[in-house]
């Protein structure tokens, strides 16, 4: 039975929620404001609405130049894009056949393989950071994009295998049975039936891999020492140094870097939880 009458309790709850949302969003609004507010603040505070608006910080951000006069931001943005793209491509291409095998084929060691991929995903990449650092040092791949892509692939591949496997599991088996009866070989089934049908799943996996690589901070910061090789997260962090912090610059950088991934996140957020908990439950 619906209460049409004005319910005080309900109104209070709505109000409380609005306040809560405002509190939660306050930091974000602060950052946006600081991106447009003139002056080099030493901390993040104050009202969330800017009094004066300027594009100075953005100009500082885009206009920063390196030792040879080149535009740093463009370079660093390009680094981020290239590295994230490369990681995504490597991750998806290498994992898709293995994900299919783990999903559909029966072979000794399948259960062990599944457990391995699950367990590997649960451990932090930072644990492997040290041995990878030592190895890349020996190979001379420190401070190089190839090296960082290899490092990112270390986490990207297990993630892609696991997610794609979950997706392949959801495709109906009868299609493959029909194809087998039609005379298709396993490779043909994979290429002509499974892959076209798995396009949404592959897109989601690729997008997640891209976002993860784009947002990665600590390994990029540790492995890249040249300013021209920095990725965007490293750039942003460097504007908030130990002793001096340019919050305006930080805010401008944060806004520019976050917007693409936030858009992608909102597009994907429904599949995020499903994939995570399903994977964890299925084990």
């Amino acid at each position: 039975m619906k209460r049409r009458a004005f319910n005080v309790r309900h109104a209070l709850v709505h109000a409380a929620l609005i306040v809560l949302v405002a509190v939660v969003l306050y930091p974000v609004m602060l950052v946006c404001k600081k991106a447009f507010e003139p002056g080099h603040a030493t901390s993040l505070g104050g009202s969330p609405l800017p009094e004066h608006v300027t594009t100075q910080h953005f100009r500082d951000l885009f206009g920063a130049r390196g030792p040879h006069g080149e535009l740093l931001f463009l370079r660093q943005a390009a680094n981020s894009i290239i590295i994230a793209l490369a990681t995504t491509v490597v991750g998806v291409v290498i994992s898709c056949t293995a994900a299919y095998a783990l999903s559909r084929l029966r072979f000794p060691g399948r259960k062990a393989g599944l457990t391995t991929f699950l367990v590997v995903q649960m451990f932090p990449a930072t644990l492997l950071m040290l041995p990878l650092y030592v190895i890349l040092d020996k190979l001379g791949l420190l401070n190089s994009m190839v090296g960082l892509v290899l490092v990112y692939s270390t986490t990207a591949i297990p993630f892609c295998v696991w997610t794609l496997k979950g997706y392949f599991d959801s495709l109906p088996r009868e299609l493959e049975e029909a194809a087998r009866i039609d005379g298709a070989s396993p490779w043909m089934i994979f290429r002509r039936i499974i892959l076209p049908l798995a396009r949404p799943g592959i897109a989601v996996t690729a997008l997640f891999s891209f976002m993860t690589a784009w947002n990665e901070f600590i390994m990029a910061s540790t492995f890249m020492t040249d300013e021209s090789k920095y990725t965007l997260p490293v750039l942003i962090q460097s504007s908030v140094g130990q002793f001096s912090a340019d919050w305006g610059l930080f805010a401008a950088g944060a806004v520019v870097t976050s917007i693409p991934v936030m858009v992608a996140f909102y597009v994907l957020q429904r599949s995020l939880v499903g994939g995570l908990t399903a994977g964890a439950v299925k084990g």
Partner: peptide
Amino acid sequence: IPNYITALMWKGMFQGQYGA
């Protein structure tokens, strides 16, 4: 929001007298 940005953002807010 990428979590390193969140971390830096909050660091700024906890900073000093004029931090949020």
